[in-house]
Amino acid sequence: MNKIHVKTNINGDQVEFLADSRETLLDCLRDHVGLTGSKEGCGTGDCGACSCIFDGELVSSCLVLGVEAEGKSIETIEGMAGQEDLHPLQKKFIEMAALQCGFCTPGILVAAKALLEKNNNPTETEVRYWLAGNLCRCTGYDKIIKAVMETAKDIRETA
């Protein structure tokens, strides 16, 4: 199988890799770029653990082919924190114990960030529906939802 040369931008860095056409973006991030923060919980778009931002849109990277990344820009969990500090959502998740095992956490953080960038004043119901594609089996979602709501409030207050 001949591999395809892919040139893309990940978290602001120019990245190149060789992809088998059957490999997903998630496979490529994890196996070719070494960014293992995005997780595979199902591989079929049902769990959200592989959530990334692909050309500005929230996607399940297991449902995007690696070769589709050519010329695109991708944001992963590894690009979420600034050089100096964590993203407010990351901080709040730690402070409010919104993670237990932490496996779904990268995907949930990426998805929650995408929501707050669209809408920094969501209702609890909106947050719950937005995150419906991110399965968490440890927390019962309670502390996750509260952490997202609290972060939104902080963002509004500092804006």
């Binding site: 778009g45 959200g48 849109e57 929230l58 449902l63 995007v64 995408a114 929501l115 419906a132 594609g133």
Partner: peptide
């Protein structure tokens, strides 16, 4: 159809 992630695609 599906989640927010699916809706993007």
């Amino acid at each position: 159809v599906g989640s927010a992630q699916i809706q993007s695609r």
